[in-house]
Amino acid sequence: MLKVAVIVPSLQEKGPVIVAENIAKFNLHGDIQFIFVSLRNNSAEDRERFNKLGLKFVEVGMGKFPTYIAIKVLKEKVEDIQPNIIHAHSFWPTILTACSLENYIKVVTLHNNPYEDFYFEYGKSIGYFMCVTMKKALKYFDRVIAISEYVKEVHGNFKIEEKCEIIYNGIENRNDSIKIEVENNTQLVVVSASVLIQRKNILTALKTVNKLIQEGFILNYYILGDGKQKKLLTQYVNDNELDKVVHFLGKQPREKVFSYLKMADCVLVPSLSEGLPLSVIEAMMMQRAVIVSDIPAMGVIVENDSEGYLCNALDENEYYEAIIKMMNESNRMRLAQKAHQVYLEKFTVEQMSRKYGELYFRIAEV
């Protein structure tokens, strides 16, 4: 039995954890055992989710930053597991695996563009320090997995070329999700599933919706997620009397997210920076056309006027034109069918899990 210790910040349903969870949940190799090591303690809800999935986990109890005691506990937890491989996801798991867990075969998955994401989230000074620290940490890994060609490219000066390979994120097929039913007398239902932070650029989406309403178009815009910009975005909606058009639904369980995507006519993802956005792949899995920002990560998934529309990230006029095009049902169906085809070809969870399984056996000394 091959044992893989999966180091994650927590069990909370965020991008890297969803990917790690799916690798384990859809593992096609019966002789791989996954044990998750969560650096932080978790909510009862997240623990219950893992228990229902039959996924084993242990908790280190780390706070916001690692301490000597937390590192000691991490080492002890991993020693108890006796893994053949350690697989790290996200910043602190990567750093602590590199500097604290010696004499193991180590794999890390790179989920983002650190130069953009860390700078957006933490500012230039701290973001730069995090990038430098990450670059040093990657030297201690046996394999580095980039989730797209773009992510591999932006890590080019990290000197990982010889040990880096690409495995796309995969999403499970959830077309059996129950569709959310709402009263709909509109020309279009648009959905965004996003954390409400600057990098996700929801304010530009709201400005686009405002322009459409001012021009006499009728639509509903549902936003799934919460975050630091919630107050700012709500204020914009109230100031422009969009409260009957824009619906903030807060953070939703993953099951509900799929149901809302099924309700959508199209999905809007106007991010300023992404690695390989799960929300776009989820929309394509649900056979929904997408409108996305024209940033490098999106070009890996979407070709303009094929699976959806690419728009200048901060240009509300381009989003405006794209949404109007989506109001044509036959055009929307054409894009949605192509989007689903691309999902089946490149982004299924079975493909992702199989490739990681093959990687583990290839590098494991068993």
Rank of each mutant, 00 (worst) to 15 (best):
F248T: 04
N238T: 10
Y168T: 12
K159D: 13
R362G: 14
E149G: 15
H87T: 09
A322N: 09
V8N: 03
W92K: 11
I295L: 07
F91D: 11
L55D: 12
K152A: 14
V342H: 10
R174C: 12
T208A: 13
E153L: 12
E329G: 00
E121C: 07
P16I: 03
V6K: 05
V37K: 08
K64G: 11
I126K: 15
D305A: 11
E162F: 06
E165V: 04
P270F: 05
P296A: 11
P83L: 00
N112C: 10
G250D: 12
I167D: 11
S306L: 13
Y320E: 06
P83W: 00
M62A: 05
R354L: 14
M352Y: 11
K159T: 05
S293P: 10
L203Y: 03
M298H: 09
Q337E: 15
N22H: 04
V60S: 04
V269C: 13
L276E: 12
I85F: 07
V366Q: 03
K25T: 11
P9C: 02
P66Y: 10
V17N: 00
Y68A: 14
F258G: 04
S192W: 06
A70D: 15
L249D: 01
Q287A: 11
R174Y: 07
G156N: 14
H29G: 07
N41R: 07
G54W: 00
N331Q: 11
F248H: 08
V191S: 09
D142A: 02
H155N: 14
N317L: 05
F120D: 13
